[in-house]
Amino acid sequence: MIPAGFDYHRPADIASAIAIIQQHGDEARVIAGGHSLIPMMKLRMADLSHIVDLQAIDGLKGITVSGGTADIGAMVTQNDLITNDDLAAALPILREAALQIADPQVRYVGTVGGNVANGDPGNDMPGLMQCLGATYTLAGPDGSREVAAREFYEAAYFTARDDEEILTRISIPVPAAGTGYAYEKQKRKIGDYATAAAAVLIRVENGTCTEASVAMTNLADTPVWSQEAAAALVGSNLDDNARQAAVRAAVDATEPVADNRGPVAFKKHVAAVILRRAIDRAADRAS
């Protein structure tokens, strides 16, 4: 549990960080909170000669909510997501989800940027960001570009981000007032990744569901955002049939693998239960 030697860099702005990465190629990696990367280094599964710490870059910090958009810097910690009042008002699902990530010690240091950039299917934020329709800003040697969270994840640890790019900001459209939400997660214990987790948004107008979004975590090698599940809900009055159809659609799209949390049949079953609970809670909260 002792990492191999490495050089430590602490650039003060994004351009310098990118320059260091360019200079060292795949020998270099950015580090944010380090709570995913350092364990990999200690296990010597990530062998890196250069660590580029993003802590000192002001341009990666800050949370603003205005004009129907929440803008979150990559270096915002998971704890910041819990304690920020503007976010709590605009996007309470962020707090609900962040509170279910790891433990306070991890959340004080672990960042939202690291969580979404990591590409680990176990991370909770990617599925949540897909549910919310978030957009990531990536800064690279040739400037910035935007990628939708729903387009970002390609396979476990493989994303649309180029090696020389840094994820700088996340922007999330604030759901309409009264939108119901829920983040539901089953885990073995505090500090564990999900056996199954579900993020759900439901908007109801005049008794009919007009908008819905459903995503699930740790049930495939990327998050499972299910348009079919949303489609099953939208237009319905959220009766039992619609909810069941949504659950079926989403769970059908999952491809869990057996691990110490349990075999595939168990995971699929729990995924259905957890998603149903999330839909029920989101529907209850919709007004």
Binding site: R188, T195, R261, G262, P263, A265, F266, H269, V270
Partner: peptide, 16 residues
Amino acid sequence: HDHWRVWKTAHDLGLH
């Protein structure tokens, strides 16, 4: 008696 083993007990007893 972790989650999946308890679940399996319930499953094998026909409770699902």
